[in-house]
């Protein structure tokens, strides 16, 4: 019984992280996503459209940890919310253009993530989730108590939207959308860059088999902390845009239920895919908005049910399932081709 003390490899399912198959498909998806992002405020009330894209980046940032590193953070509201507050405070007190305030908020989130990450990566699984939750609760408490700065329960009100004196952007949320969109798209590009970098490969190896990664000489804890800080930074970008978009920061942004919501969106769309976060956030925000505007007050009941249903029926999430089917079909097709083509089989 004492023989196998080194943890054996966790048997994860083989689904490629690196979409090796089709670079052309990737460009088509990317172009489609870009068009959708540009067209969104024509079809959706612009502030809601902005929420969708901000939440999408939030979910993507979480996916770097959840889907690519195998760490479930249940405390990301701390980074989302604190960046929202710091962004709001910078914008209010210094009158700088909003992108500057947002960058300030994101940097604050990263600084906050450093001790949080350092402490939490010492544990894995449910314990990691609990440490991040506990940390986020502490941040919530500070936000609640320090009402002189944060406005406490009333929230931070009247956050201005300065943008180099361009009045259209400062007053019209339709134009604001296009001014803020590049920040979020840049954040998404950064996430893509991270997961497809040498660093991202190490994260995947840690997720797949931590012990093996250590045996190859990787200082796993350090990699996890860096991933945590990067994820918090991107979360901060999203939270900052959210704050400017609403001109108001509510205490809810720091609440644990916000941490839960983003996990829900990411899982709904499918973890370890990046696109899954986009899809999950879009659906969740649209659904909540639709239900709210139709005067229905059991939003959580409906979104909760949808979540349960999706997880039961499509274990990989919506995007994950579609992608899996597509790859499986590709594989069948290519293996059929090799066989009939008389290719050298080994």
């Amino acid at each position: 019984m004492s023989q196998s003390t080194a943890t054996p490899a966790p048997v994860t399912e083989a689904h490629p992280v690196v979409a090796a198959a089709n670079p052309r498909l990737r460009w088509v998806l990317l172009a489609g996503g870009l068009v959708a992002a540009l067209a969104l405020p024509w079809f959706v009330y612009p502030p809601v459209a902005m929420d969708i894209v901000a939440m999408a980046l939030f979910a993507i940032a979480l996916d770097i940890l959840l889907g690519y590193t195998g760490l479930l953070s249940f405390g990301h509201a701390a980074f989302w919310g604190s960046s929202a507050y710091v962004t709001g405070l910078i914008a209010t007190n210094y009158g700088v253009p909003f992108p500057v305030a947002i960058i300030g908020g994101a940097l604050f989130a990263m600084i906050l993530a450093l001790p949080a990450g350092y402490l939490s990566v010492r544990r894995s699984g449910i314990y990691f989730a609990m440490v991040t939750l506990a940390f986020a609760q502490m941040v919530y408490f500070v936000g609640y108590q320090w009402s002189g700065l944060t406005g406490g329960e009333n929230g931070l009100q009247g956050v201005p939207r300065h943008f180099f004196g361009v009045e259209l952007v400062e007053t019209d949320s339709f134009y604001f959308y296009y001014a803020a969109l590049p920040i979020l798209l840049l954040g998404m590009w950064a996430a893509w860059r991270i997961v497809h970098s040498p660093f991202g490969r190490v994260l995947v190896s840690i997720r797949d088999n931590t012990q093996r990664a250590r045996a190859l000489g990787y200082e796993v804890d350090k990699y996890k902390v860096v991933a945590f800080v990067l994820s918090a930074g991107l979360t901060g970008l999203a939270g900052g845009v959210f704050a400017i978009n609403h001109g108001f920061v509510a205490l809810t942004e720091l609440h644990w239920s916000t941490s839960g919501e983003v996990v829900l969106m990411t899982v709904l769309g499918g973890i370890g895919t990046l696109w899954g976060g986009v899809l999950g956030a879009t659906l969740a925000v649209l659904l909540a908005d639709y239900l709210a505007s139709s005067g229905f007050d059991g939003i959580d009941l409906v979104t909760g049910s949808v979540f349960v249903l999706v997880v039961l029926l499509f274990r990989r999430g919506l995007w994950g399932t579609v992608r899996h089917q597509w790859l499986a079909w590709q594989q069948r097709r290519s293996s059929r081709r090799t066989r009939s083509g008389g290719g050298t089989r080994r």
């Binding site: 196998s4 080194a6 054996p8 490899a9 048997v11 994860t12 399912e13 083989a14 689904h15 490629p16 992280v17 690196v18 490969r201 995947v204 190896s205 797949d208 088999n209 012990q211 093996r212 990664a213 250590r214 045996a215 190859l216 000489g217 990787y218 200082e219 796993v220």
Partner: peptide, 22 residues
């Protein structure tokens, strides 16, 4: 383990221990 590996001691595992998705 990573410190030992960095001192030039490398090991293989009894139970095949790889990164399934790579």
């Amino acid at each position: 383990p990573e410190q030992v590996a960095r001192r030039g001691v490398a090991r293989s595992f009894q139970i095949t221990s790889l990164f399934e998705t790579l």
